[in-house]
Design a protein around this nucleic acid. Structure first.
Lengths: 139, 139
DNA sequence: TAGTTGACTTAGACAATGTCTAATGTAGGA
DNA sequence: TCCTACATTAGACATTGTCTAAGTCAACTA
């Protein structure tokens, strides 16, 4: 994730211990933590980090396009560091597990002009729902 | 929306003034109110209706499959009475306006087996984002 | 029509998530 | 090293949603 830190520094970010820790916590694939989970893990490494800072830092990363907000359930927002490879999400309705997926096709092209109501459509978000292998097995 | 009321009665619902009012408020096309908005409009017709009843009633309508929950922004859930015609949503990122849309194609079929991670995939939710004609004009 | 009963409604406390502010601290340039 | 604008902090506050205990009433029965 030093990639991310480098990019942020390049954008004029002042580098602080707090921001470094938040960036480190978000490292990895299929990572989709809530702000609270990020905070909990950040506290483990830097006990005095505050909730407000985690929220601020996540918000800034989102504005810079380095992290994407995901709302798969209707609870807390989740933060996905995999912002530079466009993808969608597959969610287990039972345990909440989330995987990044890459459907074929282009859903944007599937929206006919007659269904655009004059909107300028720029983006599309697809959420697949189902049950993961674990939950199927234990059910 | 007496359709809805009839269906609910048919399912053994006790018919009360509160439930009638909630059903009436949800009547129409492209209706996507938050629970609070439903409550506000319900209060206009039946001043003593409580927040809890609105939440309960909406929750019950959702369980019965008569109303669909939509989360287009990350604020409150919205309630869509158009549950019997499957559709997706187009959202204005500026003013929050929401339209029901019917894309061609089947996004479910666009998810290859290799991208399913062993999940049993049963549903897909597509949210288009853009700017509505009004907001384009006034921007 | 009146009585009965369990489903329905209510107010308000509580919970979860997120935002804001004023005071304090500090990274990085001069 | 010092300075200053930017960053952090604690905690109050806001929004959205859930729960509970007590009271109310729709619809069935007779």
């Amino acid at each position: 994730m030093s990639d991310l830190l480098e990019r942020l520094r390049g954008r004029g970010w002042r580098m602080t211990a707090q921001r470094r820790v938040v960036a480190e916590v978000l490292d990895g694939d299929h990572v989709h933590l809530t702000a609270d989970e990020v905070h909990a893990r950040a506290v483990a490494r830097l006990p005095e980090i505050s909730r407000a800072t985690v929220y601020n830092t996540l918000g800034e990363m989102v504005s810079l396009g380095e992290v994407v907000e995901v709302s798969t359930d209707r609870r807390a927002k989740r933060y996905d560091p995999n912002a530079h490879r466009p993808h969608h999400h597959l969610v287990c309705g039972h345990c909440g597990a989330i995987r990044d997926v890459h459907p074929s096709g282009n859903p944007l092209a599937d929206l006919p002009d007659t269904e655009r109501f004059g909107f300028t459509v720029s983006d599309v978000e697809v959420t697949y729902r189902g049950v993961c292998p674990n939950c199927v097995a234990t059910a």
